[in-house]
């Protein structure tokens, strides 16, 4: 069965996504790393669905719909920040910093 190997790949991809969010300062790349994490979670849902029934596929379907909505809204926010600040580097976006 492929459950164990799938969960290993999923774990590594998720950690890569977390590392990307921590390492990068470009807002768009951080956003792509969030997508990477969502993909890693989808992979473990599919791996479990192979043994527990097709409900896992339905959940993945919903995750994809939420990811699409999130990408649209998030990128719109990045565009409006860029209009205001002329940069997407998170170091320069510190309006809420005390």
């Amino acid at each position: 069965m492929l459950l164990g190997p799938s969960l290993i790949v999923s774990a590594v991809l998720f950690s890569l996504g977390v590392a990307g969010v921590l390492l990068r300062r470009n807002a768009i790349i951080i956003f792509m790393c969030v997508e990477l994490m969502l993909n890693a979670v989808n992979l473990s849902f599919i791996a479990f669905a192979q043994q527990l029934g097709p409900e896992g596929h339905v959940i993945v379907f919903f995750v994809m719909a939420v990811a699409a909505a999130e990408a649209a809204v998030g990128l719109a926010i990045i565009i409006s920040i860029y209009r205001f600040k002329e940069t997407v580097n998170l170091q320069n976006i510190n309006l809420l910093k005390g």
Binding site: L3, G4, L7, I8, S10, A11, V12, F14, S15, L16, V18, A19, L22, L23, R24, R25, N26, I29, S44, N89
Partner: peptide, 29 residues
């Protein structure tokens, strides 16, 4: 746009820890 050396080391440690923790899932049946 990478963060500096301290940030890189921190995220390397955190990423490794997380991978190890999630690797326990490999035993899941």
């Amino acid at each position: 746009d990478m963060v500096g050396r301290p940030g890189q080391i921190t995220s390397l440690v955190l990423g490794t820890l997380m991978t190890l923790e999630l690797f326990v899932l490999n035993k899941v049946i």
